[in-house]
Amino acid sequence: MTHVVPAVLAMEVSQRTGGVALRCPDGSIMVERLTSSTRRGDALMPAVESLLKEANVSPASLSGVGVSSGPGGFTGLRIGIAAAKMLGWALEIPVVSVPTALIAAEADTVAQPVFAVALAGKDDTCWLSLVEGEPGHRSLLDGPDGGRLVEADAFHAAVAGATCLLADEHLPDAMAGHALPCRPPDFDPRSLLEITERFLAEGNVVDPLELLPIYPRDPEAVRLWDAREQ
């Protein structure tokens, strides 16, 4: 008798690269890598539709959905979070929200005691997360959002305990010069799928009503307004 594995969908569209991954009922994983969603058109739901069609999996047979919660690009995050909310509610399946730093660390297969992951760099600040654990069991060290906004002058002290830095091209210049080996992160939807399945098994799920992206900062217009008012 064939063992049927629960079908789980993972959607990573918080960065310029990402994609969609599906755990098929036969246990295999199907992946469609995507470049970032643009303001002219998003590739998320077309990819989800084609992936499940190719796998011969119906929407109703999904048993869980995972989505990256950022921080990252606003366009992709909104599309991904909006879709995950609706899939969770309409299909009555559990939803898992995964900070993007954890996906990047899980996708990096090199064993490291502690990763530092720097995302959403802007104006001499970045969202810094520390991740520990072996591949397949990595976990975030900082709070529910898994990170904190760090300014350039505090960056070197903040990464002092790490053995490796994952940082993209948005890392502010003022944060360069650290002694850590540095690699670009890979936002692999397969990693998100594996974390999603782990979180589902642990009951680490989120109510679709409460599902929101991680915003490192207030909107820029608000910050400009506040600066003008002061």
């Binding site: 929407p59 909310k85 609706m86």
Partner: peptide, 20 residues
């Protein structure tokens, strides 16, 4: 507003697909 439109559109697509 494009950022606003994308929220409703993303939700509508996922809903329509979910319930066929």
């Amino acid at each position: 507003l494009i950022g606003s439109l994308l929220v409703g559109l993303g939700a509508a697509k996922a809903l329509a697909w979910s319930i066929s």
